[in-house]
Design a binder for these strands. Structure first.
Lengths: 298, 298
DNA sequence: CGCTTACTTGAACCTTGTCAAGTCATGTGG
DNA sequence: CCACATGACTTGACAAGGTTCAAGTAAGCG
């Protein structure tokens, strides 16, 4: 379960066990640095499942480190249509905006009980002067977001309903499972309705239902009442029609802040996605000049 | 025209007049700082219209500051389907990747002759230590990219073909025109085919053609052979079914690196989008209760 | 046990895609 | 300046994938 049921709501976030240390903003910092960084926080915030964390149009003057729970980002149209933009998992940073004092251009709602730690935008300048890697890491996190967003764009724009649904489920499964490396389970609590899946994939909930029905008939997966079981991972990858490498790249960690590399989490190879070369992405035929591999240490 | 036809290909980029100084990475820096920053460059690169700048799957070890020209980011599927992810205009940063030494997850192709200046990833660490704002600005730029991407997701996922095409054209028009503040022209060279518009909006070129035909019949715009004229801006905004505020927010500048605020570019109000409150975005009805709760230590 | 939310299924409809056959615009060499 | 080649645009008929409307059933919750 992604929700923190063990802690009473009054206990503040414990930075030493925070997910943001694993692949989020605070990755790679030693304990005393964490204490420093936490000094910039304006506090923590807990929201119940179903509540809004950030509302469209409200001014946003802080970034939110998602510590626990699932959160969706979405845009609501005036006629009621909704597009889910992103499923944020612990370690994500929300509310980082291009322009200072800008309004939120989308909303954020908790799917499960959730916890965020809040850092005001105006602390970012000083913070990044003290810890220059923080700025870069924010950049990397944002860049990962847009990379994921690009994959979603491709899914919605150029894939069939079948592919889209399979792709989304595969993505969420892999992302979720990557944080429980030991588990080999192929079953999980996915806190979504079929309607939600529709709103994320650009389909109607009804059609999602039909697609899920097909996938069940074919023995690929079952999903009902927020319970997901993957029955045939390989077939699922096949139906999703995507390069598993791409999905993997999101759970691989950006470069850590310092040298404190932590290989215990992330980098796991979920299900059997490692089977042979399965290129699903084409290549342009315009010759492009050579490139050199280089490693970088920030 | 966005292409630089006046300079021969051998002259290096002049940082003092570079677009990246206006709303890109180098905004707000004084001349001697610019010189410092430019010292981290590994060089410039010029590509002809139609050529690939970055190829999918190749390792990427540098960021590319787009100095001049139009560049598309796209994903190509193995069966030939293509999704255009983004239209990059001067000032954009390309190739900034979450994981060090990662492969490109998408390709980039020049639509016009284009010029980029190249900064190796491994220079970013030192650079951001010397100029901490650089890391944050990169974050802001990436965050803007994902914000734009979110708008595209909504467009493709929840808008009709008509709305999508109108939205894209409006977006490109506004973004392009924002860099020529003086001009009140409603005509421009848009270096796209109808097929390209289709690949960006998740439609077929043929259907784009039909939609454009309708828009022309209705006296809203004409677009053919890369020539765009907006005949009725207000109607176009209406058809696009989007909040112009959102589009505006992308051409508004992020906070400058220092205090050197430069209001001469950007912040223009394109066409007559300023007419009254035109909220096209809905609001959730979940009461987003209270506020900040606990304070935290480390 | 009754309520609510979520899921399921069917039939009619409509938007968009597909296939095919054009026409028009632009550039090039003669 | 024209003939030709090429890429881009245009149009029509038809099919398909997905939506809409409507009427259910099952699961979870107090």
């Amino acid at each position: 379960m992604a929700t923190s049921t063990k802690k009473p709501a009054t206990i503040p976030v414990d930075c030493t066990t925070c997910q943001a240390r694993i692949d989020g903003l605070c990755q790679g910092y030693a304990l005393n640095d964490l204490r420093e960084i936490a000094g910039h926080k304006s506090g923590d915030r807990r929201v119940k499942a179903g509540q809004e964390l950030l509302s469209l149009g409200e001014p946003c003057d802080a970034i939110y480190n998602l510590v626990d729970g699932w959160v969706i980002l979405y845009i609501l149209l005036e006629d009621g249509r909704r597009q889910i933009l992103h499923f944020a998992l612990p370690g994500a940073v929300l509310g980082f905006h291009p322009a200072n004092g800008a309004m939120m251009t989308y909303g954020a709602q908790a799917l499960t009980d959730a916890v965020v730690c809040v850092i005001p935008h105006k602390a970012l300048g000083p913070l990044s002067r003290q810890y220059p890697e923080v700025g870069l890491r924010l950049g990397w996190l944002m860049s990962r977001d847009s990379s994921m967003s690009y994959a979603h764009l491709t899914s919605i724009g150029r894939h069939s309903a079948r592919e889209r649904v399979a792709h989304l489920i595969l993505e969420l499964f892999i992302r979720y499972r990557s944080r429980w490396p030991g588990h080999r389970i192929e079953e999980m609590h996915l806190p979504l309705t079929q309607e939600d899946i529709g709103d994320a994939t650009g389909l109607t909930g009804i059609h999602v239902n039909r697609v899920l029905g097909d996938l069940k008939t074919e023995g690929i997966l079952t999903f009902s009442y927020r319970r997901l079981s993957i029955l045939d991972p390989d077939k699922l990858v096949d139906v999703a029609g995507t390069d598993p490498e791409l999905l993997q790249s999101w759970i691989r960690q950006p470069a850590p802040a310092q040298s404190a590399r932590d290989e215990t989490v992330g980098g796991v190879s979920p299900i059997s996605l490692t089977k042979g070369p399965r290129r699903r992405l084409g290549r342009a035929n315009t010759g492009s000049g050579g490139a050199v591999v280089a490693r970088c240490q920030a």
